[in-house]
Design a protein around this nucleic acid. Structure first.
Length: 271
DNA sequence: ATGGTTGTCATACAA
């Protein structure tokens, strides 16, 4: 069966609910994983999402910040909202695709929103950067443990790191910029390898192709300047990697009216 | 070297 999954940092699920339903109508992935919903759970806009044919939803949220959600056409099971670094800050939701979903049954999905890390790449001067590295360390410890379980796994999310040289518009100019510093890129690559997961985008589209999923709001003409970074990722367990047929960034969505600063990233698998 | 924009929640703060 064809199975598609999208990750998208939406930067407010309530403000951009019409963009979400447009995306679901036009692209119709089986599963849409959102980050930065910025929405308390009692205000999550379930109705228009269900009306779009996504009857199975799971989400974690809080007032003002963070928040992750998984919207699915297929049944969900074992929904698990995880805490990290001693904070209940709605940055991670894990689940399985439920029984009755054909070949997708039992697929494990992990949706992460990794802390951005502030402006100064120094753990002594910037507690937010220390939090980011601590969060990554916990992700790694957990992923290494889960590896033994060996369920087919898709890990997605806004990982807030562009790990490779061609994941940013200028490797040299971003080496001191949080999201592309050597400590972050090395930590993320080591974490991915320790987890035994494959970077789906680079499996199909190796360097030196430039791939971006985020463009700053602060750029007056983001499309012409094209100073992007690949912060949003889809990782696959080794059993799933050979089934991956495509990974695409829907750059058009960055140009929609009042857009998120992130574009959706979609992987298609043939299970 | 600096400031540039956006969202939430109401005044800074995070990104």
């Amino acid at each position: 069966m064809r199975f598609s999954i999208t990750t998208w940092n939406i930067n407010s699920v309530r403000l951009r609910i019409d963009q979400i339903t447009r995306f679901l109508a036009e692209q119709a992935p089986d599963v849409l994983c959102l980050q930065e919903t910025k929405c308390p759970v009692d205000q999550f806009p379930e109705k228009p999402i269900r009306a779009a044919g996504y009857d199975h939803v799971a989400y974690a949220g809080m007032k003002g910040y963070n928040g992750v959600a998984i919207l699915s056409k297929l049944p969900l099971a074992e929904i698990d909202i995880r805490e990290h670094c001693g904070k209940a800050d709605a940055r991670h939701i894990a689940l399985r695709i439920g029984p009755g979903a054909g070949e997708a049954s039992g697929l494990r999905i992990e949706n992460f929103y990794v802390p951005a890390g502030g402006d100064i790449p120094d753990t002594a001067l910037n507690p937010k950067f220390a939090h980011k590295l601590q969060f990554l360390a916990e992700m790694r410890a957990q992923a290494e443990k889960a590896r033994a379980g060996a369920a087919p796994t898709i890990l997605v999310g806004d990982l807030n790191i562009a790990p490779l040289e061609h994941d940013v518009w200028s490797h040299r100019q971003l080496l001191d910029v949080v999201s592309h510093t050597p400590v972050e890129t090395a930590t993320l690559e080591e974490l991915r390898e320790a987890a035994g997961l494959v970077d789906a985008a680079r499996l199909l589209r190796p360097q030196p192709e430039k791939i971006y999923s985020w463009w700053s709001y602060r750029s007056p003409d983001w499309a012409a300047a094209d100073k992007g970074r690949r912060l949003d990722h889809i990782w696959l367990s080794p059993d799933l990697a050979p089934t991956c047929r495509s990974v695409e960034v829907l750059r058009d969505a960055r140009g929609w009216d009042r857009p998120s600063d992130h574009a959706p990233v979609t992987a298609v698998l043939e299970l």
